[in-house]
Design a protein around this nucleic acid. Sequence first.
DNA 1: TGACGAAGTTAGGCACGCCTAATAATATTA
DNA 2: TAATATTATTAGGCGTGCCTAACTTCGTCA
Lengths: 233, 233
Amino acid sequence: MIFESTRSLSASLEDYLQAIFWTVAAKGAARAKDIARQLGVKASSVTGALQTLAEKKFVHYQPYEAITLTAEGFDEAARVAQRHFIVREFFVRVLGLDEAVADKEACRMEHCVGDDVAERLATLMEFVKAHPEMQSGVSQLLAERDHSDGMPASVRRGPVTVADLRSGQKAVIVAVRSGAALARRLVDMGLGRGALVEVEGVAPTGDPIRVKIRGYQLALRRTEAAAISVVGK
Amino acid sequence: MIFESTRSLSASLEDYLQAIFWTVAAKGAARAKDIARQLGVKASSVTGALQTLAEKKFVHYQPYEAITLTAEGFDEAARVAQRHFIVREFFVRVLGLDEAVADKEACRMEHCVGDDVAERLATLMEFVKAHPEMQSGVSQLLAERDHSDGMPASVRRGPVTVADLRSGQKAVIVAVRSGAALARRLVDMGLGRGALVEVEGVAPTGDPIRVKIRGYQLALRRTEAAAISVVGK
DNA sequence: TGACGAAGTTAGGCACGCCTAATAATATTA
DNA sequence: TAATATTATTAGGCGTGCCTAACTTCGTCA
């Protein structure tokens, strides 16, 4: 892993802590067996994880005895669980994702979402709850997009085009809608898939968009810009 | 790592692919040196990663020669970059996060967000762009919450209370607002931090909330429920 | 009490992903 | 062209986190 984890625990240890947290809440204490079953690992892996968690003072652990959380362990586990919950609720209530899918996605996200993002997501959800018209507007737009069709994402037109970029942003071209007059113009310049575009300026009305591609300066009309699917940086 | 990665590449290899993607876009080809500098790793680590990526047919790699992406490598890199971009834009434009912070968070998220979530986020952003009143409403609420104050998240009242739960959901109590008459009632029952609550039913008006705690059945008024900070499951 | 089975632990192996140190290939410059 | 500097590769080591296999501890029941 390259990205610096500002967290005190690895994703894996967070998972162990979660399993202990929920088991302790339900039964008063956790046994290695429970944890192994929940996480789908062997008992020996649990022992190893418990030793590490005990070293870090997150669990009370004596060999062969039931496991409980320390105060710090409880706090840490609660933070992770909170992130999981907020992310899942956001997926379900705002993005309209299926419950089961949302929960699985949240299992991955709980390890990488920062607390600041989680809090802001919670605030956003509060806003959405207070404004149901927005909720319905979003779900309508989602339905139009028909996310559940069988088409692979790579076939559908990408969600980002040059028209979505802000001044100063860079992007890589992934497709140019064929048939557009622009397509020929760009191809004539030897451009296309893989080329880097840089937005130099956008007029206040959003219409002429000045871009730089491979040293060339171009002015694109909004409709032309919207025909160029890109991946932004 | 316990959570099953449905991805074809590890987070680490995705990072290498990203570095190659942007370098190739800017300069036509990448050298190991560039990649090492961008990712903050040693050259020998780059060689190892390149060999793995070449095995998986994501890069064209011959020892001592410049590196380019295969068609599959380009597609994969573009997908990751797209996720990064959409997540960052969401953080900045909807959650009002600082650009630099958003970018760093997105670096972590790009590896765990599913394509379905990314697409839905893009759709949500489209909606927000078309409804600026929502944008401003959210930022106002965010400002009220004052996310930038110095208080640690653990001190502020948690964002989720029993009143936020839906029927059937479970949660763990993390705090009961002192002063509430309910606090005594719960403490008398031996409850508090760490106890499991289960919502059995919510009246249509949302007012009496029936919950089960440690076998006891309770009916809570909405104001009481809102005094119990929990972590939902 | 002593034997048995379940639960838990230790020891050792493997894959990943980073590192350092030594070596090899390529570029640059005299 | 030869010496040197830069860049890249190999070899071997270390931490993490999983595994299997062998062993220990604990609780139960005859």
